[in-house]
Nucleic acid binder design. Structure first.
Lengths: 204, 204
DNA sequence: CACGGCTTCTGACATTTGTCATGCCGAGTG
DNA sequence: CACTCGGCATGACAAATGTCAGAAGCCGTG
């Protein structure tokens, strides 16, 4: 009914991006119109080339896949976004979906499958890797309140409470309370373990 | 003078591995004789197919690239090992070189370059990405003693001193002393920041 | 409007850390 | 052999953290 699917490929690893570009080009109905290695670059390329589907890596320098997806949603509503990732954390999937992403797959799929999924997404349907979806469901929603998550994030690099308090413009006591409740909600031993746990679930 | 270079490709991401396999196959003098998705699998494949060069991802389930390289060194001395990685930490490079790895490159290189490097390595020469090499030199050697590193590693998941002491079969006081000296050697604020720092340098 | 949940704070307490001084033993070095 | 360094330990003190109770304001829902 129409021409080939026009693709934007964004991944910071040349090796993967190039290889992917070659493989996907082998498909008759797919054509790569642009490539990018960073978030901002992906955005610029999308504006310039108006792709039908943007295949984005989740972790890129500059701005991650979800951020790019959000911006794309506003600027190019017609462009479908498909996120590809190595380390799919449950929380990322949720945020991606909220950002209007149409597909979310791990890099463990084959190029064949990816091509099919690109077609699915282009057709207006959604596709989420079943395993990642199961993980996300199993992990559930973050039990943390906004502030708890914020404070936990500031604690992520091992900063002392005093520093966290300053950066969050809170009193030290409040910070300790938030940390304490976050730790107990997550069932962690201490805040550092809590950070790791929240990280692994993609809640921070 | 001889036939094509026989390659083993190991990477847990099908997408990348498959794409890479296709791209490298395009080169007349390279042929992929085996693929693997995990460390142990890579080892088994190497034993079965006796490749000339093993292209290994640094991070794989089961056993990382360096571990596989060490095993390969012993079992198949004729097999040259080339490590490819996304996140190249300085310490990894050092350990890889100690394991007899002949090449170490980031995934940001192009397939063309990779093919050239594979030939270089096959020819008995070494190749280390200049940028990674510079990072490794800048980061220098770990100032930590073996025990300090060990204790720091046990502290990595936020475990309390008591647990570290038990797992390391040391007294709590000793653990604290080691942690303390590690923290001061690394110039960190506290042990958690120290862990992060050591991690980023690949010293743990 | 009353209730519950989130945010924010204070203060007090117990526990966990980080730091330091000090000591002993074994291995390697000049 | 004396010296140094790393590994291991104690004990003691100060600082940071974790835990609790209590209290006030704000917001949305029933």
């Amino acid at each position: 009914m129409s021409g080939p699917v026009r693709l934007l490929l964004a991944d910071d690893e040349h090796l993967i991006r190039g290889a992917l570009a070659t493989l996907l080009s082998l498909e008759d109905d797919l054509v790569i119109v642009a490539e990018a290695a960073t978030g901002p670059e992906a955005l610029a390329m999308a504006r310039a080339h108006q792709p039908d589907v943007a295949v984005l890596d989740l972790q890129m320098p500059g701005a991650d896949g979800v951020k790019v997806a959000t911006a794309l949603r506003a600027e190019l509503p017609g462009c479908r976004v498909l996120i590809v990732t190595s380390h799919g954390r449950p929380g990322h999937l949720k945020r991606a979906l909220e950002a209007g992403v149409r597909g979310f797959v791990p890099k463990t799929v084959s190029a064949q499958r990816l091509a099919e999924i690109i077609r699915t997404v282009h057709g207006g349907n959604r596709y989420v890797d079943p395993e990642l979806a199961a993980d996300a469901i199993a992990a559930g929603d973050s039990p943390l309140t906004a502030r708890e998550a914020e404070v936990l994030e500031l604690a992520a690099d091992g900063a002392p409470v005093a520093e966290i308090a300053e950066r969050a413009a809170l009193s030290q006591g409040t910070v300790r309370n938030y940390l304490s409740s976050a730790v107990s909600k997550l069932g962690a031993e201490n805040r550092h373990a809590a950070v790791r746990l929240a990280r692994s679930r993609g809640w921070v």
